[in-house]
Write a protein that binds this DNA or RNA. Structure first.
Length: 423
DNA sequence: TCTGGGGTCCTAGGACCC
DNA sequence: TCTGGGGTCCTAGGACCC
């Protein structure tokens, strides 16, 4: 049976989540900012119509914000994650196999459902259900490969006549749409590849589809070869229902205000390590390698720059926050240079092992923490209870460098005191 | 003054071994 | 002093994604 994929993608997801709880903003332009209130990461359709570009730093559009009364929100990830859960659970009820691809996108495996319902009807049903149950607008793209489903979704968003659902299983329709699509709009083709492809005279998706796979493999990598094959309807990328275990965990942040003291840097880093360790335990993994990096702002040309990273192995894989903090602090000691204005720091955990599988070497020291598992369990349980926080002595109580979030909306769906009131 | 965060995969090149 | 080729493993860097 030929496989059929659908891609369901929420429209302007973060902006839509914010609007959902603010009916008064139904027709107002809305933008959502990145962490630290840095850049625009989501725009409502009204904001897009005003020409607000994705990724632009907020300070560059101060004037437009004033002039057009654009509503600005700091990102509110607990709200978006909760709304995402609702959308994904609904999809899982409707389709036999679902791959959650990102916070606002999912691939569905629709292979075989055509005998029961037309693909386009199914797509409309999905769209209607999510709209009615959750209040989020989605577009649905359907095709014989993931890359074509992505492309169909792109078309569903772009051409309003489609009413948000495109079935691209027909070969003739595929070629028609490919001819209309610039090569840089293809999933897997970014700025760099697109420039190289253009230089070779490959301008549209159809041009790429009609170039031989062999020639693509010669000039580029196996990744683009797969894209070329997928554009021709040959599936190379499978549906992944179960997310593969992570290979690394990164926790980093830009500071709300520049950091100049070693003490503050240590506190900030401890926060990141603590979060990273929590994620690690949630993955049920232990890490053996830890990397710390600190840097000044690359945008400040007039001040001295410093950027450096250092890695070290733990004597044995660990998920104990204390081990990770200890190692990261000794790395920071080596990395730290006085007199710089630091803009960002972070930690990377890697080289993961399943708990209990590591073969200890002959002269390895046994862990000094005999109660590690129980203690970390208690810490995680308390911190997730919503009733209080336990933290490590190194973490700061007063955080001068903390992230800027000046336009945060309430936690409408995950905290009682964020519940919306109807008067 | 103010420019995000978190991931994956692939390749090339060097180190090292036989 | 001259000198080969093939294989593996690791890492850094580049490219992409949302």
């Amino acid at each position: 049976m030929t496989p059929i994929f659908a891609l369901v993608d929420c429209n302007n997801f973060y902006a839509s989540c914010e609007k959902l709880f603010r009916p008064d903003l139904a027709h107002t332009p809305v933008v959502v900012l990145s962490n630290n209130d840095g850049c625009v990461v989501a725009r409502s359709k009204e904001a897009k119509a005003l020409g607000i570009k994705m990724g632009i730093p907020i300070f560059k559009i101060k004037q437009q914000i004033q002039q057009h009364g654009i509503q600005v929100f700091s990102s509110n990830y607990s709200l978006y994650a909760d709304m995402s859960d609702r959308v994904m659970r609904t999809l899982e009820d409707m389709a036999p196999r679902v791959e959650i691809y990102s916070i606002d996108e999912a691939f569905l495996d629709l292979t075989g459902i055509q005998s029961a319902v037309s693909l386009i009807d199914f797509g409309r049903q999905v769209k209607h259900t999510i709209d009615r149950w959750i209040g989020i607008t989605v577009c649905v793209g359907i095709g014989p490969t993931k890359t074509l489903a992505k492309l169909a979704n792109h078309a569903a968003k772009k051409y309003t006549a489609t009413q948000g659902v495109v079935d691209l299983t027909d070969r003739k329709r595929q070629r028609k749409l490919l001819a209309l699509t610039p090569v840089q709009d293809i999933w897997g083709v970014g700025r760099r590849l697109s420039a190289r492809l253009q230089a070779m005279g490959i301008h549209t998706a159809l041009d790429l589809a009609d170039t031989s796979a062999k020639s693509i493999r010669q000039h580029f990598s196996v990744v683009l070869e797969r894209t070329q094959r997928e554009l021709n309807g040959e599936p190379c990328i499978q549906l992944e229902q179960i997310p593969p275990t992570k290979k690394q965990i990164i926790c980093s942040r830009s500071f709300g205000a520049r950091v100049t003291s070693r003490i503050q840097m240590g506190q900030a880093l401890c926060e990141h390590v603590t979060r990273a360790a929590e994620k690690l335990r949630k993955e049920q993994q232990q890490a053996k390698l830890l990397t710390v990096f600190i840097r000044t702002s690359p945008y400040q040309n007039n001040t001295p720059q410093y950027s450096n990273a250092l890695s070290a192995q733990l004597s044995r894989p660990s998920d104990d926050t204390r081990d990770l903090i200890q190692l990261s602090m000794s790395l920071l000691d080596q990395l730290w240079r006085d007199r710089y204005h630091y803009a960002k720091a972070g930690v990377v955990l890697s080289d993961f092992y399943d708990i209990g599988t590591y073969q200890a070497e002959l002269f390895d020291q046994p862990s000094i923490h005999t109660n590690s598992r129980q203690l970390m369990n208690v810490v995680d349980t308390i911190n997730h209870s919503g009733r209080g926080q336990v933290f490590f002595a190194r973490q700061a109580v007063k955080k001068g460098w903390a992230m800027k979030r000046e336009h945060l909306s309430p936690a409408y769906t995950t905290r009682w005191n964020g519940l919306i009131q109807v008067n």
